[in-house]
Amino acid sequence: MGKRGLKIGSAGMVLALGALVSGCTSIKDHRGYIIDQALVDSVQPGVDNRESVEKTLGRPTFASEWGNKDWYYVSQTIETPAFRSPRTQNQVVLRVQFDPKGNVIDVQRRGMEQVARITPNGDQTPTLGRERSLLQDLFGNIGQVGAAGMGGSGTGSSGSGGSGPNGS
């Protein structure tokens, strides 16, 4: 019975370890436009226009706000390891440039070289202005009531001669 109990115990440990390891796998997710290279290759500068590009590739992920209204198609593969933040594993940005008449000038494809990995410095964002404590924020305006423009000068309190919205 002692040997059999040891085998059952070790089998239970292997199963528990397997369950723990399987819970630590990464999740891969695709976000954005699904690129079909044959369709992208069919968009030709000088031949296609906005309407034909929309029929071929669909609506863009977003369009530029300034200058020529370039269209962008963004495709990302994201991997999220267990208990960690998601990371971009692959990214493709397809940029379709148009002339002022709406004809295709150029089609550019960019990859991971455009991804910027930013590491914040601490958990605070530096700002301009004064440093104030919680008590200063709560009680900082005490004594400020009745300050300039609040009718304390005596000229506007009787209702005559004032230039404010209520005659003060």
Rank of each mutant, 00 (worst) to 15 (best):
L138M: 06
N141R: 14
Q136I: 00
L135K: 07
G151M: 00
S160C: 10
G152L: 05
G156L: 11
L135V: 08
S163M: 12
G146W: 04
G161N: 15
G154Q: 02
L138D: 04
N141H: 11
P165Q: 09
G167I: 01
S157R: 09
G143P: 08
D137G: 15
N141F: 11
S153E: 10
L135T: 09
S163N: 12
G156C: 13
G159L: 08
L138G: 02
G167L: 00
G140S: 11
G146Y: 04
V145K: 12
A148C: 04
S163A: 13
V145I: 03
G151H: 03
G152V: 05
Q136K: 03
G164M: 06
N141V: 08
N166V: 00
S160N: 15
G164N: 05
Q136N: 00
G146L: 08
Q136V: 00
G156D: 13
G167P: 03
Q136D: 02
G154P: 10
S158Q: 12
S158T: 15
G154T: 05
I142D: 07
L135P: 01
G154C: 06
S163D: 07
S160D: 12
A147C: 08
G161W: 12
I142F: 14
S153R: 12
G151F: 04
I142K: 10
A147R: 13
S153G: 13
M150F: 00
A147P: 04
S163R: 14
T155H: 05
G143Y: 02
S160E: 15
A147S: 15
S168W: 01
N166Y: 03
G140N: 09
P165L: 09
G159R: 13
Q144V: 03
F139S: 12
G161K: 14
G167W: 00
G164Q: 08
V145G: 11
G162Y: 09
S168I: 05
A147Y: 05
V145E: 14
G146R: 02
G159M: 10
Q144W: 08
G156E: 08
S158M: 11
S157P: 03
G164Y: 06
Q144G: 10
G149I: 00
G152M: 06
G167K: 03
I142S: 14
G152I: 00
S158I: 08
S153T: 14
F139I: 11
V145T: 09
N141G: 09
G149M: 01
S163E: 12
P165Y: 04
S158Y: 06
G152S: 14
I142R: 12
G140R: 09
G140I: 08
S157L: 02
G140P: 07
T155W: 01
D137E: 12
Q144F: 09
G149A: 06
S157G: 06
P165A: 13
N141K: 13
P165T: 06
G143Q: 04
P165V: 01
S160H: 15
G161F: 15
A147F: 09
V145W: 03
G156K: 07
T155C: 02
T155R: 06
G143M: 03
S157V: 05
G161S: 15
G149K: 02
S168G: 15
